[in-house]
Computed example of a mutant assay.
Amino acid sequence: MSSDDEVIQAIAAGSDAGLVMDFDGVLSPITDEPALSELLPGTAQTLERLAGKLSTVALLSGRPVGFLADRAMIPGVDLYGSYGLERLTDGGIDVVPEAQEWTAAVQAATRELHRELDSIDGVDVEEKSLAVAVHWRRALDRAAAEQLVEPLVARIIDEFGLRREPGKCVEELRMPLDEDKGTALQRIIRADGLRVVAYAGDDRGDLPAFRVALASGGYALVVDGPDAAEEVARVPGVHFSGPGAFQQWLRQLDDALG
């Protein structure tokens, strides 16, 4: 298992190094209200400095790229949303062509989830452009909310042909494409010609990216939290106690790069 100092030394050893990160739970604390998620103070400035020193600094999130643009439009930082299906460019938002075929199914599933769940206190339906998610973090009885949500999600997934992605107090319904954060990270590595890459994440949706980073000879940076899934806690890499600790590491990396 690598140490945080070893990762810093590897990234600092050459100019063709990249740092790719999730947003929620990594650069922003998990919030009961998903829409209130935002960067920790000072993080944007650190990322901007790092972007001037590394070949690639990027955010790769399950959130829509528009959400990232509203909260993390940082010079030099690339933004990939919807698990890499979207990328912010100078000309707007580029979407993987295959995603267009499933837009209507996602929209129909979103309408059904709103109809079934909008009246349930503490349960929120989050529209995510190319996906839809159901959160129950605000529920007073999370276990009861999960028991309510899971069979509904299973039915809607079967009805509309979507794919289930579970997370921390959330069920996400995604397009059934052979695309995830791992395939997105592979594209970033190839397109940017990265010699070494470190990927930072905190949830099950990050597991494919952790695997790709490690398989490429790079590093997994795992930001642990109180609701961390067991498979995430077992990822071989550098583990941080939360977004605050990861932010401190980012500052150490910035200092090491000079």
Results as ranks from 00 to 15, higher is better:
E6D: 15
V7M: 05
A10T: 14
A10L: 12
I11E: 02
D16M: 12
D16G: 13
L19V: 14
V20M: 05
M21I: 06
L27T: 01
S28R: 08
E33P: 05
P34D: 09
G42S: 10
G42Y: 06
A44V: 06
Q45S: 14
T46R: 04
T46W: 00
L50R: 04
K53P: 04
V57G: 01
R63M: 00
R63F: 00
L68M: 12
A72G: 05
A72V: 07
M73P: 07
S82Y: 00
S82Q: 03
Y83A: 01
L88T: 08
T89F: 09
T89Q: 11
V95E: 05
V96F: 05
A99D: 03
Q100Y: 13
E101P: 04
W102Y: 15
W102R: 03
A105W: 04
A108N: 11
L113N: 03
L113I: 07
S129T: 14
S129F: 03
S129E: 08
S129Q: 10
V134C: 07
H135Q: 10
R137I: 09
L140V: 14
Q147I: 04
E150H: 10
I156L: 15
L162T: 05
K168P: 04
R174D: 03
R187F: 05
I188A: 00
D192C: 12
L194V: 08
V196Y: 13
Y199W: 06
G205I: 06
V212P: 00
A213C: 11
G217N: 12
G218C: 09
V223C: 05
G225I: 04
G225M: 03
P226D: 14
A228E: 11
E230Q: 11
V235Q: 04
V238T: 08
H239V: 07
F240I: 02
S241P: 09
A245N: 13
L253G: 01
